[in-house]
Amino acid sequence: MNQMTSVEKNVNTQDIKISASGVQVYYGDTHAIKDVDVEIEDKTVTAFIGPSGCGKSTFLRCLNRMNDTIDVCRVEGTILLDNEDIYDRKVDPVQLRAKVGMVFQKPNPFPKSIYDNVAYGPRIHGLFKNKADLDNIVESALRRAAIWNEVKDRLNAPGTGLSGGQQQRLCIARAVATEPEVLLMDEPCSALDPIATAQVEELIDELRTNYSVVIVTHSMQQAARVSQKTAFFHLGNLVEFGETGQIFTNPEDPRTESYITGRIG
């Protein structure tokens, strides 16, 4: 774990982008998230770690109100984006999701061409001036997601025809093309080989200069490599939240320590 020392020095205090306090999530009678407070800083990568089923995806989905689409799901507490309550009536979830983009845990390319998949967001939000402009947006998104070389010759082939790992990167490209202010990534590298993983991590690092990124990961090394802040979830509770370096070298909670050292999980 010698990479994390390099990350450590980059950490500097930033503005708060998202501030969640007292968040509770229920799926029907299941209490999935229990009283979670987190502050996500701007221009920072925050990692969510924790054992499977502890509520990482659920909490992530609260941040762009994707839980609205699940009938049985109920969210309580306040989540502020740029000091505005995103669960306020005045807030349009559609606009919110354009600002807070998301890469889902399972790759979900649309049954359209690769090009149309990436151009989907820009087209909906009118982010381009002309066809050449759109071509540029698509190309740069695909390049940033480290998939351009593999697909540049078949942009008109269906996105569903790609391999699992390629689909995952296509979905990253699709999210990046919309230029969100916050990017939520739910296990974006789960199906990627080490090379593609390194490229995606590079992208995350690059995105950090302008946006804030939240990444869910099961890889401790990845969390240590890419993030400045880490939140450890366990059974719906936020056990520990702090500087990544500190969580990995000197955790306060015994549960964090045993998870990181591989004793629970």
Partner: peptide
């Protein structure tokens, strides 16, 4: 699949855009 809707809504599309385009 619901994942298609999620993908579209997650990019900031409205319901009718999702219906029409995805």
């Amino acid at each position: 699949p619901q994942a298609m809707r999620d993908g579209s809504l997650g990019l900031g599309a409205t319901k009718s855009e999702t219906v029409r385009q995805v």
